[in-house]
Write a protein that binds this DNA or RNA. Structure first.
Length: 852
RNA sequence: GCCGAUAUGGUGGAAUUGGUAGACACAACGGACUUAAAAUCCGUUGGCCGUUAGGCCGUGCGGGUUCGAGUCCCGCUGUCGGUACCA
């Protein structure tokens, strides 16, 4: 890129205004109880997803959402809101630890460096953050409350009757045993098969496996003792309470499907002495169950396997155990399985059906056992075809008979007392019959699993738990935060033994009392950071009552963060986890609203100039620092908003950046003209005079359009309107100063530096222009009367085709307009040989003459 | 496979409740200024036919509703994203 003269000296005034905002604490906002707090002001809480401060620095994707929220912040401030717009750091995480392994340096150092770089980059973009509220998940004062919230979960149970969390103390008072109590905690210990990565030295959540495998790490499956959070208790509420939220429909659906509610029945089958319960969503097909399948890990497999099948079954179980979930599904093209030799009795007709084990049935869902109805389930059909098992049709498809398998709804046949019933009724009847006979019951299942909450890494929050005599105990609150000790080296132990177990001095407390050595996942800190911003230094609680009531909107329905902007890649995990924690805190009375995020908006991904996803390997990554260097922060901000609709995926274009840069240059030159010496002086065209009709019209049209578009996050069209306004004003011989100032006011949320600079220069010269910074001004008032025209252009159509355009009075009645239309020469030409059948008049729009 | 999003000029994208398709930009071309270039300013720019006037066609494809469809309905196709034996 050749050096060239800048269109305007952004490199001089942008840092100057940023320093001004910092010095004046322009965007600091007081809390209830503070001296300058004004309770009469309405609040608005705009939240960005806080970044993980990676070594790579800011990516152009970050300023996309951040600029959007910044525009909202500045706009709402101008409208008189107390706006909370904070930023912080999700600073625990594997990359810093990987760096520590390589260098032997404490991960805190790397984290601090990266954080400083991120902060510098964000400040350079002029965002209106209240930096006094900055939080960092790795700060001891933050860790303290993350651990405290964990203890809230640990010390609570889910009360089914009241459908909410309650203190565990109630169970103690009720005289439950220690084991019974531990089994009901919201944070509990369980032995479960987990994804263990030997080279990362940690267990991963199911959702993380894919990501790390792509980066070349190995992940295997093995059973381990882990901390779990009982998110499944909240499954129904997490679905139901989405309803009142202003989130994109698709995102709600995504979460709903992730939670995966299905209604059906549990049915008991007898296998010899043993009872095996299956879950099915199609109890109406019970007469068509021709075999049964158990998951290979099902505890009853060994009981029911016959001697001559024992070897085959054991071999199959062995083969499955070493396969990861991924391999199980990757190899899912062909069904595999083994006959156990056992037979089950179908309770509805007493028929004996063979019992198989197969890995297409998973232990983790339902009961780990199914009744197979090959005629009406594709998987069962495939399995039955492969192993030549019986197929009995029990549902008749509506319309044409169907070859093979029919999984839809129809009418029951070959099903005794269900015959002739449509699927829905058959389901109800058989379920009632099973319940009456004590052979089964209605049942609801969720795909959602409990949340595996422990990791074996170093760089995370330690669990505030100690072990005594094989039992876990909570640390007293007074011992929080519990910080991890420094280590000599951060290399994984090579075994599933957590890294912290290396620090024996720290772990062993004497008398056989040991600290828990697992750490929390990164999600822990990010689950509640939006609460801490509201009250970032509170030493008594994660968030104080008054701060919660005001910022989270106790009296609003449903309350919570007013606008949350961040990538849809977090739409299921982070957003689900945070909602879960929030509900627990709500149930326990620590917060006053049931949902954390009232409105959520995911911006679309920004692709590389080649239309591909930005990545180092493709060499198409755009660095925001480079863009700021060449065109300034305002241009970067404005371009990212002008690219297209915020929610859309869109490719980067440097030419596009130049386009908005030129626009800002045009605004600059409308106010200032450069002389021979290169100094910028106020344009002679600017006049302190009342704006004429045309100027008022375009300026007020701009106030209206920009305001509406900000509300709906349609920033691209707001910007194009400001371009129209600028084009209109700048081509004039004299320009009313007040029109320019109004334009600067509406431009200021988008491009705050240049707007402030121009306003300051105008204020220094013209008495009529306020020198008060735009950031503290009110949003300009719209006067609709300027937008009303006496005459409007309407379109004349003949048979739907545009033939002419005429001007008519704004209040002309239909008859007048129709007469004027028919009088048009062009219309006359087209209808000369035709008969007019009908004339449609749309006031202010068009006249359509229908003729043939 | 299932779920969701989406399809408009050479490009990014605009278009109230159905009512002038292509706003605003980018690129391209032509012109002015300049010794020259950059920057700036002015003009042209969906396709086809036509010297002009003007006409015809045109919002992924095929139907439909309507005076009128980018927009609504039915049936497809492509692209992107999510998810995957969840019984």
């Amino acid at each position: 890129m050749p050096t060239r003269r800048k269109q305007f000296p952004f490199d001089e005034f942008e840092p100057r205004w940023q320093a001004h905002w910092e010095k004046e604490s322009t965007f600091s906002v007081p809390n209830p109880g503070d001296a300058d707090f004004d309770a009469a002001k309405p609040k608005y809480y705009v939240l960005d997803m806080f970044p993980y401060p990676s070594g790579a620095g800011l990516h152009v994707g970050h300023p996309e959402g951040y600029t959007a929220t910044d525009i909202i912040t500045r706009y709402k401030r101008m409208q008189g809101y107390n706006v909370l717009h904070p930023m912080g750091w999700d600073a625990f995480g594997l990359p810093a630890e990987q760096h520590a392994i390589k260098t032997g340096e404490h991960p805190r150092i790397n984290t601090e460096n990266n954080t400083a770089n991120f902060r510098r980059q964000l400040k350079r973009l002029g965002f209106a953050y209240d930096w006094s509220r900055e939080v960092n998940t790795t700060d001891p004062s933050y860790v303290k409350w993350t651990q405290w919230i964990f203890l809230q979960l640990y010390n609570s149970y889910f009360c089914e009757e009241e459908n909410k969390a309650k203190p565990i103390k109630e169970l103690e008072d009720a005289g439950l045993s220690r084991e019974e109590i531990d089994d009901r905690r919201l944070a509990y210990v369980a032995e479960t098969p987990v994804n263990w990565s030997p080279d990362l030295g940690t267990v991963l959540a199911n959702e993380e496996v894919e990501e790390w495998k792509e980066k070349g790490h190995t992940v295997e499956r093995r059973p381990l003792r882990q901390w779990m959070l009982r998110i499944t208790a909240y499954a129904q509420r997490l679905i139901d309470e989405l309803e009142g939220l202003d989130w994109p429909k698709g995102i709600k659906l995504l979460q709903t499907n992730w939670i995966g509610r299905s209604e059906g029945a549990e049915v008991d089958f007898l296998i010899g002495e043993e009872t095996v319960t299956v879950f099915t969503t199609r109890p109406d097909t019970l007469f068509g169950a021709t075999y049964m399948v158990l998951a290979p890990e099902h505890p009853l497999v060994s009981e029911i396997t016959t001697k001559d099948q024992a070897d085959a079954v054991a071999a199959y179980q062995q083969a499955c155990a070493t396969k990861s979930d991924l391999e199980r599904t990757e190899l899912a093209k062909e069904k595999t399985g083994v006959f156990t030799g056992g037979f089950a009795i179908n309770p509805v007709n007493g028929k004996e059906i063979p019992v198989w084990i197969a890995d297409y049935v998973m232990m983790g869902y339902g009961t780990g056992a199914i009744m197979a109805v090959p005629a009406h389930d594709e998987r069962d059909f495939e399995f039955a075809s492969q192993f030549k098992l019986e197929v009995i049709e029990v549902v008749e498809a509506p319309g044409e008979p169907i070859e093979g398998c029919f999984a839809g709804e129809g009418t029951s046949i070959n099903s005794g007392f269900l015959d002739g019933l449509p699927t829905k009724e058959a389901k109800a009847k058989i379920t009632a019959w099973l319940e009456e006979k004590g052979l089964g019951k209605k049942s609801i299942n969720f795909k959602l699993r409990d949340w595996l909450f422990s990791r074996q890494r170093y760089w995370g929050e330690p669990f505030p738990i100690v072990w005594r005599d094989g039992h876990h105990e909570a640390l007293p609150e007074s011992e929080l935060p519990l910080l991890a000790p420094d280590l000599k080296d951060y290399k994984p132990t090579g075994t599933p033994e957590p890294l912290l177990s290396k620090a024996t001095d720290w772990v062993e407390l004497g008398d056989g009392v040991m600290r828990e050595t697992n750490t929390m996942p990164q999600w822990g800190g990010s689950c509640w950071y939006y609460l801490r911003y509201c009250d970032p230094t509170n030493p008594e609680a994660p968030i104080g009552k008054a701060a919660d009531a005001y910022w989270m909107g106790e009296n609003q329905n449903p309350g919570g963060v007013d606008l949350y902007v961040g990538g849809s890649e977090h739409a299921v995990l982070h957003l689900l986890y945070a909602r879960f924690w929030h509900k627990v805190l709500f149930d326990l009375g620590h917060v006053t609203t049931p949902e954390p995020f009232q409105r959520y908006f995911p911006p679309g991904l920004i692709m590389g100039e080649d239309g591909q996803k930005m990545s180092k390997s493709r060499g198409n990554v755009v660095n925001p620092d480079d863009v700021v260097e060449l065109y300034g922060a305002d241009s970067l901000r404005l371009y990212e908003m002008f690219m297209g609709p915020l929610e859309q995926v869109k490719p980067w274009s440097m030419k596009g950046v130049e386009g908005v840069y030129r626009f800002l240059g045009k605004v600059w030159r409308m106010v200032l003209v450069q002389d021979q010496e290169g100094d910028w002086n106020l344009s002679e065209k600017l006049k302190e005079q009342d704006p004429d009709k045309a100027a008022n019209k375009v300026v007020h049209a701009t106030i209206k359009k920009v305001g509406e578009d900000i509300e709906s996050l349609s920033f691209n069209t707001a910007i194009s309107q400001m371009m129209v306004c600028t084009n209109e004003l700048s081509k004039r011989d004299t320009i009313p100063v007040s029109s320019v100032v109004t334009l600067l006011e509406v431009l200021s949320p988008f491009a705050p530096h240049i707007s402030e600079e121009l306003n300051a220069r105008l204020g220094a010269r013209f008495d009529s222009v306020s020198s008060e910074p735009l950031a503290d001004r009110e949003w300009p008032e719209l006067d609709e009367s300027y937008l009303v025209e006496d005459e409007v252009e309407i379109v004349l159509q003949v048979n739907g085709k545009v033939r002419d355009k005429i001007m008519v009075g704004k209040d002309d009645d239909k008859e007048t307009v129709e007469a004027a239309a028919l009088a048009s020469e062009k219309v006359q030409n087209f209808i000369a040989d035709l008969t007019v059948r009908k004339v449609i008049v749309v006031p202010g729009r068009l006249v359509n003459v229908v003729a043939n």
